[in-house]
Design a binder for these strands. Sequence first.
DNA 1: CTCCAGTAATTGACGTGTCAACTATGAAGC
DNA 2: GCTTCATAGTTGACACGTCAATTACTGGAG
Lengths: 152, 152
Amino acid sequence: MPGTRKLPTREELRIWRDFLETGEALRNVLAARLQADTGLSPGDYAVLLALSEAEGNQVRSSELAALVGWERSRLSHHLGRMERRGLITREECATDSRGAVVVQAPAGAEAFQAATVPHLRAIRELFVDALTPAQITAAGEIAAALRQRLRD
Amino acid sequence: MPGTRKLPTREELRIWRDFLETGEALRNVLAARLQADTGLSPGDYAVLLALSEAEGNQVRSSELAALVGWERSRLSHHLGRMERRGLITREECATDSRGAVVVQAPAGAEAFQAATVPHLRAIRELFVDALTPAQITAAGEIAAALRQRLRD
DNA sequence: CTCCAGTAATTGACGTGTCAACTATGAAGC
DNA sequence: GCTTCATAGTTGACACGTCAATTACTGGAG
């Protein structure tokens, strides 16, 4: 028949928008709390987390980009901002003169230490504790299904 | 006991990150398709959608901000960019000299028309069709639960 | 050794988003 | 009328992100 449905129904669209907007609101609240508690942005947190887990709290720039899942350009811009604020430093790489090694500065380590517990608590409060165990499982399965579809 | 868990488990944290990153990836793909198909950003689409649904395809600026759920400042910046590209125009308001009326320009109407079906198809393909009906329902309930928790 | 394709990282231009400050008008109370 | 406060909207400064171009070095083919 003409007009065979390839488009979402009104209800499906409502759920999509709800899903989208709720995710955005949640990210915004978590970001605001992190900022208020420690002055870090989610990007700062991701970088400092990766550095904290690394040997000697330092990583080659490209590797860091892979760890946080960013393009190198994005990382470079972000590191510039973090360096200005004294959260990290960039040093030359001994084994490859093109390369840069990103090092956690003392202020960065300190800020990360201060951030981690409140941030995890906030995730627990606003995500984990907001859902039933079944919903948490379902959220994981939904994410997996969506990610699977994106790989096409 | 000391250390009674207030923090998410490893598994809960994994699901949270998956949920977060998958949402981001999905938004990025939808935005890229919209851009490729019609040159519109998601913001452009939201504005043009609201205008399309309005009487005479025009809305007072503040009302538009409420419709799309943005701060007025954000809307103002975005309208400036859209105006430069000929998607909308801004005109004086007859009943309030402070006010501005945002009007859909011909190019805006055309771009929105061209965008809507492909965009809805993409939502169906990447969201609706990627999930089972039960998962769609669950996604709606998860969004509702998270939103409820945010209202505190 | 020399050339050159590939890699590491940065840069500049620009779109996007927030916050705080500002302009200008409306509206209420006196 | 006039002061005062609220409202409409814009602006500037800056954080964040993408893309394309650029710089500088590496490493292999000849």
